[in-house]
């Protein structure tokens, strides 16, 4: 009868087990790229969805304004075109920076993606801070210009006062909803996901004991 040293034989297989990694190294790189690509694709789809939705809303509002006043429609069109251009420019800059990221090392690429997407969110929020009050004021001004009323100085002051009194909370609410809620739901949660993965990878093998096979 033959002897069978269970633990000894199990330990002998260890070298083969360690060599196995070499055969799958390439697959890991593909997987790392796919994972990041999934999150980035989600961001891309959300941006496209956002654009389509904006076009629809803007078109509906534009149609209403067009019926009201062609001059206002032109002013509105110029504003909207400018806003779309800036949004698209911001997004294309994001895509360009992301494409440049070296995807070979997952942790480094994660750090880069997080930095780039956070920068995109910061710039987009800053854009909202600037555009929203400007659009409000210009819209108000255009509406007043369209009216045939000639204002006295006192009436101008009253109109300005009401614009500010009404506008400040409305603009604040719109900025808050966009920057605090909308961006958080649309984009920041993906950054949080990426940050969580990065933190796990960083902490993962901190003070791990090395694997030992057998006793």
């Amino acid at each position: 009868m033959s002897t069978f040293d269970l633990e000894g034989i199990w330990r002998e297989d260890r070298d083969k087990a360690h060599r196995h990694y070499k055969t799958v190294e390439g697959e890991l790189e593909d997987m790392a790229k796919k994972k990041s690509a999934n999150i980035l694709n989600k961001i891309h789809r959300k941006f496209v969805g956002e654009m389509i939705f904006s076009v629809v809303v803007v078109s509906l509002v534009g149609a209403g304004i067009f019926r009201f006043s062609i001059d206002m429609f032109i002013g509105y069109g110029v504003l909207i075109a400018g806003a779309f251009y800036m949004s698209l420019k911001l997004y294309l800059s994001l895509r360009r920076d992301i494409k440049k990221v070296n995807q070979q090392r997952v942790l480094e690429s994660l750090e880069e993606y997080i930095r780039i997407i956070r920068l995109y969110i910061y710039r987009s929020k800053r854009f909202v801070y600037i555009v929203t009050p400007v659009a409000y004021v210009l819209g108000y001004a255009m509406a007043l210009a369209e009216s045939d009323i000639t204002f006295t100085l006192q009436e101008v002051l009253i109109v300005l006062g009401s614009m500010i009194a009404f506008g400040v909370p409305v603009v604040w609410l719109m900025v808050w909803l966009t920057n605090k809620q909308y961006y958080r739901l649309m984009y920041e949660k993906h950054v949080v996901q990426l940050e969580a993965i990065r933190n796990r990878l960083k902490n993962g093998t901190g003070s791990e004991e090395s694997q030992s096979v057998g006793s």
Partner: peptide, 13 residues
Amino acid sequence: MVDFKTIIKEHDP
């Protein structure tokens, strides 16, 4: 620096 590849390399057995 640790990354997923390193984790799998260490734990592939």
